[in-house]
Design a protein around this nucleic acid. Structure first.
Lengths: 340, 340
DNA sequence: CTTGGCACTCAGATTGCGCGAGTGCCAGTG
DNA sequence: CACTGGCACTCGCGCAATCTGAGTGCCAAG
């Protein structure tokens, strides 16, 4: 049904449309690409492509633009990987050089992604599969309040204020020692069990204080830090000030909702270990983003830190470059987290 | 020069223009406001107001719109406080109810502000003037890395990874004890001095490990946490999709730069203890935001937690409502932080 | 000082028109 | 049978001309 030339034509249409932002006609196509056929022939191919739903006409006397289905075919079978420019490679190194803790890495990554893709970047906090608890600290704030701090081996620090009955410094010290003895050196999942087993061991008197602290710890352990995302490069949206209603507005709304972002990233990378995934237009389940695309990738390794990152932009985007950039950043950050 | 009626006219112009978004003419003015004079009279007043620079004509045959100077006069002398609606008061309570730590308060505040002003909200992290150091923790990550955690009495936790020469757990314990003995219970400013005096006391051998830790602490203490800001309500910008170049784009760009935001807030609240401040158009030093206004207020008390919050929007905004909302939120959050 | 009247201005909407990019179809050709 | 040149047709877009009316400034009268 679709011979090689028709595919070439589709590829040419996508390429030209993405760079010019305007419907592309048969003559322009043969002029700018070495198709070695006449415009008339291209027109026949276009008619076929349109019948199959890969391209469409905005109005009768205009050129063609790709449909979501057209982009999909392009991404799946026609796009060739475009290597990163030296400048982009340099950017990756300069941006990430000297990053210390996880917060820093995430912040830098989101800026980096935004800069080289010229899109809105989203990075999910990595969750460390191999992390173990290093230390639990209890600090008295007032006579009725204690600050609970949990430190894990990958450099994450989680905190929570706990309301408590009147307590003495000595009580805290004992509680701290007991808890640390139980959970330091074990994985979060194991810590949950240990803590559950711990409570009955306290005397009734001490249990009044231990109980709220332990439930707070359980909550912190359950509250997966990878549920947090960071966003950057929002001003890149201004490049699409035409398409305000279809791109700028919906994306701004989506960015405000962490849940939506997590859903988008998760949906995009589901099932595709490690490689770049693209969701085009209506393929995104989030209604408002049906005229935008998400390019995402997981990063890190399954037995180490693992999370996803990606970008959001109009369906009309330069997929080869964007995919290459997302892949490169994901790999680099993955390695960086693993080694550093 | 400006009699009462001229001021009434200016007030009417500002009010109508803000609500209609269109230049307002003399006839519309007398119809919608009880000025008790004819359009011709109003025209004379308008001519005077224009001579003085309070209003201007976009083009010859159009109505008048206020200038920055006109808004300034309106805000200073003409605006009457518009009390919050019951719904808004309810919103304040529901949003803030149940907030626990500082992070949570800031996050909720920014959402709240965005919701009731319908503008982009900015909240600076509060810095506690009376805060004292509660605890310093050192946690071994690898043989060459240590996680430094500083906990202050107001519930803030600051962390930093420190690169270190090879170390033993015992070394760390000693170092931890020494540092805690020196700084726990004192204010950050005092801690800086104590730490400076501490270094010479270490043996040459121990100094290799103490030195990087102490400099990291000094950096953390110097890095004022109030330098962090949180932003929300960005989608509210979509209401101004006309004015894309003058409002949406510059604001998005400013939001990406924490430094700019801090500067804006600081500039706006400088010298005006506790009350709402308005900076209109060109009064803002940041070049790109010369056609937007900032409504800001400090919150908290000088001897307690203290910081600023505010909103950014087009100069053409409903100042009475916005100012009332910013003031109410600032006061509520201030009290909330104080009481706990 | 206020007001009604009046001439004047000019931005924005409306209309009409020609251009040209682009198409679909068809008959001719290798 | 695939490709091509030719041709008639469509129709969005840009441009100029026109019209409308909101709004103004000024003036003379109350």
């Amino acid at each position: 049904m679709l011979d090689d030339r028709k595919l070439d034509v589709l590829k040419a249409i996508v390429t030209d449309y993405v760079s010019s932002q305007e419907p592309v006609g048969s003559r322009a196509l043969v002029e700018r690409h070495a198709l070695n056929v006449s415009p008339a022939t291209v027109r026949n191919d276009m008619a076929a492509l349109e019948d199959e739903g890969y391209i469409t006409q905005p109005h009768t006397s205009a050129g063609r633009i790709p449909t979501d289905k057209g982009y999909r075919l392009f991404v799946d079978r026609l796009a060739t990987v475009k290597p990163l420019s030296p400048a982009e490679k340099r950017a990756i190194h300069t941006f990430m050089h000297g990053a210390l803790d996880v917060d820093d890495v995430v912040t830098r990554t989101v800026r980096l992604l935004a800069q080289i893709t010229h899109q809105v970047a989203i990075v999910q906090y990595p969750v460390s599969v191999t992390a173990i608890l290093r230390h639990v600290e209890l600090v008295s704030l007032t006579s009725h309040r204690v600050l609970l701090v949990m430190i894990t081996s990958n450099g994450r620090v989680e905190q929570r204020v706990v309301e408590l009955a009147e307590h003495q410094e000595a009580d805290l010290a004992a509680l701290r020692a007991t808890i640390n003895q139980a959970v330091v050196g074990v994985a979060p999942a194991v810590a949950v069990e240990r803590l559950g087993a711990l409570l009955p061991e306290f005397s009734v008197q001490n249990r009044v204080q231990a109980s709220p602290v332990i439930s707070a710890m359980l909550e912190l352990l359950a509250a997966d830090p990878s549920h947090r995302v960071v966003v950057g490069g929002v001003p890149n949206l201004t490049r699409f000030s035409d398409q305000f209603e279809t791109t700028v507005k919906p994306v701004l709304e989506a960015l405000e909702e962490q849940v939506v972002l997590l859903h988008l990233l998760g949906e995009a990378t589901r099932g595709s270990q490690g490689d770049v995934t693209v969701r085009i237009g209506r393929e995104n389940s989030y209604e408002r983003l049906r005229s935008t695309s998400v390019v995402a990738s997981s990063y890190g390794t399954t037995d180490d830190a693992w999370a996803t990152l990606g970008i959001v932009g109009p369906t009309r985007m330069d997929y080869p470059s964007t995919m290459a950039a997302v892949r490169a950043v994901a790999r680099y950050v993955g390695r960086f987290l693993h080694e550093g």
